[in-house]
Design a protein around this nucleic acid. Structure first.
Lengths: 275, 275
DNA sequence: AGATTGGTGTGGAATGTCCCACATCGATTG
DNA sequence: CAATCGATGTGGGACATTCCACACCAATCT
C-alpha cells in the first residue's frame, strides 16, 4: 500500500506468513490462493529457499525449524560440533544457584540447551527466545525474559527497554556471544545487540564470551567492549599470536572445549543424516 | 536395545528424529533408508500425524511448527475456521497507527497472523511469543515484547514484571483471549495469565475479547474481569439467552465473524488460511 | 490345527508435481 | 524508438506420489 513493494515481494511475504501457521504448504494451493501459476510459486519458493527463509519440499515448502537450528544467520550448521564443545566447557563455569544472563546467538542458544540437560537450580535472564525455550523445559530453571523490541533476525528483543531492564538485576555470570574477536575486544554487527551485551557484562560478576575459533581476528562494525571487561573466553581452539597475548594481558581466562569424544550411545539412531 | 520395542515404533521414532534435523522429509527417501516400502512409511506418517507428532505433506512429512500449532493446549486444529473468522472480524477494530496490546493464546495468535497479512502500520505490545513471531515478519509493525517469567505452557511471559511493564503504556485496543465466558465475565484457568489480561484491559481504551462460541458459558477457575470492563466481543456465533442479555446490559458490542465464504482470488492479504 | 489379526509388500490406475523451452508483457535504459 | 531485462504464463514429457484392493506372513487366540 504505502511502500513501493512489488507483487513478488508481497507474494513471498505471504508464503512465509502462511508457513508461520502451518508446518508446510503446497505449491498448488498457494498458486490458487495467490492467483498465480504454480510455476511462479515454485520460483518464489526456490528464491526463498536460497535465502534460507523456507525450505523447499516436494510439492511445496516447509518452514525451517525455528527451535534452534534456524538461520541464526551464521554458518550455524557448519559448527555444531564446535558449539557443543564450547557449550560443555562453559557449563563448568556455572554453579548451582547462580543467576545467569544469557545473550542471544546460536552459540549461546546451544549453551542454553546443554544447560537444560545439566539440570541445575538456576535463574536465567535472557533476551533470546531460543535460550528461553531451551531452558524452560527444565523446571529447575527459572527463566526471566527481557522486554524490548522484538527482532526477527535473532529472535530476541533489543533496545533501551532491554538494557534498562537488565540494569535492575545483578548476575553471577553473563554469557555472551559475538561475531568476531579482535585484540580490541569482541565485535558485532548490530548496534542494538551490542548494547545488550554490554549491559549484561556490566551487571554480572563475570563476563564470559562464548565464541568459536573461526571468529578469531574477525572485525565487525562495532566493538562490544574492551578485552579486560571479560573474565573468561570459552572457545574450541587455543588462540594464538597477538590475540593470545592480549587475552592474557587482560587477564581473560581461556577455556578450550574438547570436541565430543562422546561415545555416541545413539540409542536407535542411524546415520539418517545427509542424502 | 533395552525395551522390547517393535520395528514399527522404531521406524516412527526415527522419522521423528529425522524431522528434528530437517524441516521436512520425503516418503521415498525414508522408505529407502528404513528399508521398507513407501506404502509403509506413508502409513507410519499417517499414524504419527493422527498423534499430532508430525504433519503429513505431499511426498513426505514435516515437523509441526513449534511456533504456534504445538500443544498450544486447546483443540487448536478443530477450530481453525472459527478462529479465522474471528480473526478477520477483529481486524475491523484496528485502525492504522493504533497501539495494540495482544494477549497470549491460540485465538489471539491467529489474530496476530491475520493482522500481519493486513499489513498496517501498528505498534503491538504482547507477552506471547507466537504473536510476536507472527507479526514481526511484517516490517510495518513494531513489536514490543513484555518482560516476565517465561512459561512453556503458553510460550509467553507472565508475572508481576509483565504486569507492571504494561502499566507503563497506554494502548488503543487490547485483544485478549479466555478459556470461558460467563455472565460474570471471561474466565481462565491460570492466575498469572489473568493478571496480564486485566492489566491489558485496564491500560487500553477498548478491551476486546476474542473467543469462539464453544467457550460460551464455560466457567473456569478465575474470573478475569466483569463484563462491563470489556468494550467488544468478537466471536463466531451470536450468543444467546442470559449471556446475550448480560452482554448487552454491559454495553459490550458483539461482532460475529462469518466463516470464509472466501471469494478466492484474494489478491492481497486475505484468507490465506487453512485448507 | 484353524481362524483371526496386525503389519507389510505389490501392482496399477489416477493424479500431481517438476522442469524445460518458449512466448508474453511491462518497465527501464541506451 | 528499440533493445534489454525481469517477471510471469503455457504446454508437454518425464517422473513421483497416492490410493486402493489384495496377497502374504507371522504371531496370537479359540
Amino acid at each position: 500500500m504505502s511502500l513501493p513493494e512489488g507483487k513478488k515481494a508481497m507474494r513471498q511475504r505471504l508464503i512465509i506468513a502462511e508457513l508461520g501457521m502451518s508446518p508446510a504448504v503446497r505449491t498448488s494451493v498457494l498458486a490458487q490462493r495467490l492467483g498465480v501459476s504454480a510455476e511462479t510459486v515454485r520460483r518464489d519458493i526456490e528464491e526463498l529457499t536460497r535465502l534460507g527463509l523456507v525450505s523447499r519440499t516436494y510439492g511445496g515448502a516447509a518452514g525451517r525449524q525455528l527451535g534452534l537450528q534456524p538461520e541464526f544467520q551464521d554458518r550455524s550448521t557448519l559448527a555444531v560440533e564446535e558449539r557443543d564443545a564450547i557449550a560443555r566447557a562453559a557449563i563448568e563455569l556455572v554453579k548451582p544457584g547462580d543467576v545467569l544472563m544469557i545473550d542471544s546467538g546460536s552459540t549461546t542458544a546451544r549453551f542454553a540447551h546443554a544447560l537444560a540437560l545439566a539440570a541445575r537450580r538456576l535463574t536465567v535472564i535472557t533476551n533470546c527466545f531460543a535460550v528461553a525455550n531451551a531452558l524452560v523445559q527444565q523446571s529447575e530453571v527459572r527463566v526471566l525474559f527481557c522486554p524490548g523490541e522484538f527482532s526477527s533476525r535473532e529472535r530476541g528483543v533489543y533496545g533501551s527497554e532491554t538494557c534498562s531492564f537488565l540494569q535492575r538485576f545483578y548476575a553471577d555470570v553473563a554469557f555472551i556471544g559475538a561475531s568476531g574477536l579482535t585484540v580490541e575486544g569482541p565485535t558485532d554487527v548490530e548496534t542494538q545487540a551490542c548494547w545488550v551485551k554490554r549491559a549484561m557484562i556490566e551487571r554480572a560478576e563475570r563476563g564470559v564470551l562464548l565464541l568459536d575459533a573461526t571468529k578469531f581476528n574477525r572485525r565487525h562494525f562495532e566493538i562490544v567492549c574492551p578485552l579486560d571487561a571479560l573474565s573468561d573466553l570459552v572457545t574450541d581452539r587455543q588462540p594464538e599470536g597477538a590475540l593470545a597475548s592480549s587475552l592474557s594481558a587482560s587477564r581473560v581466562a581461556v577455556h578450550v572445549g574438547r570436541k565430543a569424544d562422546n561415545p555416541a550411545a545413539a540409542p536407535a539412531g542411524l546415520p539418517l543424516a545427509s542424502s
